[in-house]
């Protein structure tokens, strides 16, 4: 498999300013050392609870903010650079000159806020094209119409304002805008969580087919595990600014390793009555990313924490080929789950 992006020890600390002089008193450790490879043509799902840094990861890749430290290497095709480009240190204009700006795109969570309410659909979709290349009016309009068709809208929708559309249609417009510059990689930040269930499936299917036809690589950020299971090939589980487990989708859903992954799996409300996983109800809340716990970040809520977990931070290590987890007891968790929550639990997954 060919890498398209490689994140190396990526950190992002947001300063907490306080006092009259707005001095930095502390930092929110939104990302605290992320290592992740993304392969060409895959759909990588990123799951985790609110505030664990999913969006921050996505925004670092498309450089909507400057990470505190670490690197994001982009192995682009059709850009003006042979070498992998480190996105984190490349200036904005250099990104544009190298032709990278249009290659990395993002679709935001809420289509109501991600489309300018005072622009016509035509201009919303034409804007990214215009900022990449010069094009005549006719040609531009044809391109916009082609894009609209691709996302299931028609030319009748050209001259309308975003508020004249339903949520699902707005998200389609946002997708059309993201694919307008012929990108290679798109961050999808919870693209369906603001939508209705019946519309969610339309968008998911649209994204799936677009990925096929346009050879796209996706990073699909969500907190909804069933959606991830449906759409992605590989899943990364985040907790408090760290990756805790990365595996192929089937592996993660049948042989998870990290206790947090187990807890997430047991917490999803499953719309099936026969299929019931037992509950592993985690006590307490996610700790604040301002002062993350020492040692393993999950130890405050982990049912299997041992002495070592309080002191030593577990590293993200391979459990088997293509399956990494960050837990000191990664080889024993399955047995521990079976012991504490019943063997049924394990068999229910398989």
């Amino acid at each position: 498999m060919e890498k398209i992006l490689s994140l190396k020890n990526l950190k992002k600390y947001y300063p907490i300013l306080s006092g009259v002089f707005r001095r930095e008193v502390n930092t929110v450790k939104a990302l605290d050392g992320i290592d992740l490879d993304i392969y060409r043509g895959e759909c990588l799902g990123v799951v985790g609870e609110s505030g664990c840094g999913k969006t921050t990861t996505g925004k670092a890749i498309i450089r909507l903010h400057n990470p505190t430290s670490g690197h994001v290497y982009y192995f682009g095709k059709g850009i003006k650079s042979e070498e992998p480009v480190d996105i984190t240190i490349t200036k904005n204009f250099a990104l544009k000159r190298l032709g990278i700006r249009g290659k990395l795109q993002m679709v935001f969570q809420d289509p109501t806020t991600s489309l300018n309410p005072r622009m016509l659909v035509k201009h919303i979709i034409a804007e990214p094209i215009k900022s990449q290349e010069r094009m005549g009016g006719r040609e531009l309009e044809d391109r916009v119409i082609a894009l609209l068709k691709l996302v299931g809208l028609t030319r009748d929708h050209l001259l309308r304002y975003p508020h004249e559309f339903s949520g699902g249609q707005r998200q389609r417009i946002a997708v059309a805008r993201a694919i307008a510059t012929d990108p290679e990689f798109i961050v999808l930040d919870e693209p369906t969580s603001a939508l209705d269930v019946s519309v969610q499936s339309q968008i998911l299917n649209l994204l799936k087919s677009l990925q096929q036809t346009l050879n796209l690589t996706f990073m699909f950020v969500t907190h909804h595990l069933l959606v991830v299971k449906y759409i992605s090939n590989r899943v990364a589980v985040m907790y408090l600014g760290k990756m805790v487990e990365i595996a192929e989708t089937e592996v993660l859903f049948s042989r998870p390793v990290h206790p947090y992954t187990y807890a997430l799996l047991s917490a999803i409300p499953i719309p099936e009555v026969e299929h019931k996983l037992g509950r592993i109800v985690l006590s307490g809340d996610v700790p604040s990313p301002v002062n993350p716990p020492e040692g393993c970040r999950f130890h405050t809520r982990c049912p299997f924490a041992i002495e070592r977990c309080l002191q030593e931070e577990p590293l993200l290590e391979a459990v088997e080929a293509g399956h990494q987890a960050a837990c000191h007891r990664k080889h024993h968790i399955e047995a521990l789950i079976a012991e504490n929550f019943g063997q049924n639990w394990i068999s229910a997954l398989r």
Binding site: V197, S201, I270, P271, E274
Partner: peptide, 22 residues
């Protein structure tokens, strides 16, 4: 239609979408 449109845990099936809008 609604049940066919939501992703499930145990079955791997193409999601069917309900055409049109509310």
């Amino acid at each position: 239609a609604l049940l066919d449109a939501v992703p499930k845990f145990s079955v791997e099936k193409e999601l069917k979408s309900i055409e049109g809008n509310v």
